[in-house]
Amino acid sequence: MISAQRNKYLETTIQTASPAQLLIMLYDGAIRFCRAGIEAIRNNNVKDANVNLIKAQDIVSELIITLDRSAPVSESLLKLYEYFGHLLIQANIKKSAEPVEEVLQYLLELKETWIQANKLAASGSAGAGVQHA
């Protein structure tokens, strides 16, 4: 029962979120799965490392798919996301935490950048948000 209520809450949250909120939610998920993958690697838990790193890769793929290719910064973001995907695959193959830690640091910085950009856009024009470049 509680799980069904939680799923309904999450579904409603996603359906009512702005594009900027959805982007930040994607970053939050990728960050969470990277951290879980790093912990699993450090604990020699191969199965959990694989599951979490694949989830992080899936989110990075979603970031690539949803990228607005008409934005000037999109080409740079695309290359960066592709690099993240490469690092996550290498980390998963080698069960090495270092590549995931690199991705994690970039994700944390990018998330903060998007949060700040959304705040600036919202303060600059009433209710405007940031689209995924």
Results as ranks from 00 to 15, higher is better:
55 K>E: 07
80 L>R: 13
92 N>C: 02
95 K>G: 14
78 L>D: 15
35 R>S: 10
102 E>D: 05
97 A>T: 10
74 S>H: 08
47 K>L: 12
40 A>S: 13
92 N>S: 07
67 L>W: 09
42 R>L: 14
84 F>C: 11
41 I>D: 15
46 V>D: 14
89 I>V: 14
59 I>N: 12
44 N>Y: 07
46 V>S: 06
110 L>F: 03
33 F>L: 04
87 L>F: 08
63 L>S: 13
83 Y>P: 00
49 A>F: 04
78 L>P: 05
69 R>Q: 08
60 V>P: 09
108 L>Q: 03
61 S>L: 15
99 P>W: 11
94 K>V: 12
75 E>H: 10
101 E>Q: 12
52 N>Y: 01
97 A>R: 15
63 L>M: 14
76 S>N: 09
53 L>V: 09
45 N>Q: 13
51 V>L: 09
75 E>M: 05
57 Q>E: 11
57 Q>K: 07
44 N>M: 06
77 L>M: 10
91 A>F: 05
46 V>F: 11
49 A>I: 04
79 K>I: 08
68 D>G: 05
73 V>Q: 06
35 R>W: 10
97 A>F: 13
101 E>F: 02
73 V>F: 09
37 G>K: 08
69 R>D: 10
33 F>T: 00
61 S>E: 12
53 L>S: 11
36 A>F: 06
36 A>E: 14
69 R>S: 04
97 A>C: 09
73 V>T: 08
85 G>R: 08
45 N>M: 09
50 N>D: 14
110 L>P: 00
39 E>L: 08
54 I>S: 00
80 L>Y: 03
43 N>C: 02
45 N>Y: 08
35 R>G: 15
86 H>N: 10
56 A>Q: 07
101 E>I: 04
92 N>E: 04
83 Y>N: 07
104 L>P: 00
50 N>T: 13
72 P>R: 00
69 R>A: 12
100 V>G: 14
69 R>N: 03
69 R>M: 07
92 N>R: 05
78 L>T: 03
92 N>K: 06
80 L>G: 02
84 F>Q: 09
70 S>Q: 12
86 H>E: 09
39 E>Q: 14
72 P>W: 01
70 S>T: 12
79 K>S: 13
94 K>F: 07
55 K>Y: 00
48 D>W: 01
91 A>I: 05
89 I>Y: 04
110 L>A: 02
48 D>N: 10
40 A>L: 01
71 A>E: 13
82 E>F: 07
